[in-house]
């Protein structure tokens, strides 16, 4: 059993005991598979207009199982494509925030002192900025651009990650086993690699899991306001927006994308919660 195996198998055991998290993980997995492979089995593409079936309700007979929108496009395929975008943005922006956050937080936390003081003051100031509005401003000024969305969202979320990683790095630095490693002649690289990072990964994993739904939410929010991805490409937020505008005449246009979005966020949050209970000793129930 390797050390990391120890960490993940402990977490795995705790997760399996948490039924909500297990079910969430299973649903998420099937959702991801559906989003990736589902469109391959559909006769329609996401921007194909079926002129005979404008805004038709869900039906098995015509093959449009989720119905079509005002432009006669198949909602099933569009929902899956929207899911691709939402999930991709979620993962990519989380990766961005992880990268910046870990580097920044670990630097501040490990070196400490005046450097830490200055770096954390900067984070404090950035924290107080109304980022959602700045992102909207950015979108207005520079137009819709999926790359910009990644950067903007990553730029918001790295702050949390940096704070968490810094706190962890700081407390690890003072832990006796790290001090013992120094007296054992271990160099800084070895200390960070063998002693600090392995003990930090659990917490990072938890917060990464909780960051993905936040990011998806932000992207959907922007798309809902008409500031996200551009037509004919779509995302769950954009679909919900279209659905909301047509909910009286075509409620299915709202219900399908809305449930996909809600279920995904629900499962991700449950999984993150479960993972936190399993890995983060601070929140462990019981003793």
């Amino acid at each position: 059993m390797t050390p990391m195996g120890g960490l993940w198998s402990d977490a795995g055991r705790a997760l399996r005991r948490n039924r909500a998290a297990t079910i969430s993980a299973a649903i998420l997995l099937s959702l991801i598979l559906l989003v990736i492979f589902g469109p391959l089995f559909s006769p329609w593409s996401y921007d194909y207009t079926d002129w005979g079936e404008i805004a038709s309700p869900p039906a098995l007979s015509n093959g449009h199982v989720f119905g079509t929108d005002q432009l006669g496009r198949d909602l099933f395929v569009r929902t899956l494509y929207g899911g691709r975008i939402s999930l991709m943005v979620g993962l990519a922006a989380t990766a961005v925030s992880l990268l910046i956050g870990i580097a920044y937080g670990a630097t501040a936390g490990y070196f400490g002192g005046r450097l830490d003081h200055v770096m954390m003051r900067i984070v404090d100031i950035l924290y107080a900025l109304p980022f959602m509005f700045l992102v909207i401003l950015l979108m207005v000024l520079f137009g819709r651009n999926i790359f910009l969305i990644f950067v903007a969202i990553g730029a918001i979320n790295w702050l949390d990650m940096a704070r968490i990683v810094r706190g962890q790095a700081m407390s690890l630095r003072e832990r006796e086993f790290v001090v013992a490693a120094r007296t054992s002649g271990t160099r800084a690289g070895g200390i960070i690699g063998r002693h600090v990072v392995p003990n930090l990964l659990g917490v990072v994993a938890v917060y990464a899991t909780l960051t993905v739904p936040q990011v998806i939410l932000v992207e959907s929010f922007l798309s809902f306001l008409g500031l996200g991805v551009a037509e004919p490409m779509t995302s769950w937020g954009a679909l919900v927006n279209e659905g909301a505008q047509n909910m009286e005449s075509a409620p299915w246009m709202l219900l399908f994308p809305a449930s996909f979005l809600a279920i995904t966020l629900f499962c991700l949050n449950f999984l993150g919660d479960g993972l936190r209970d399993a890995l983060d000793p601070r929140d462990r129930s019981g003793r």
């Binding site: 919900v240 709202l254 979005l261 809600a262």
Partner: peptide, 22 residues
């Protein structure tokens, strides 16, 4: 509470309108 967190307000709003108003 988990539902409240997971259903964004731009989803919740039209759903509420759909059910309670429409």
């Amino acid at each position: 509470a988990m539902t409240g967190i997971s259903v964004p307000n731009f989803v919740m709003a039209p759903l509420l309108v759909l059910v309670f108003a429409v």
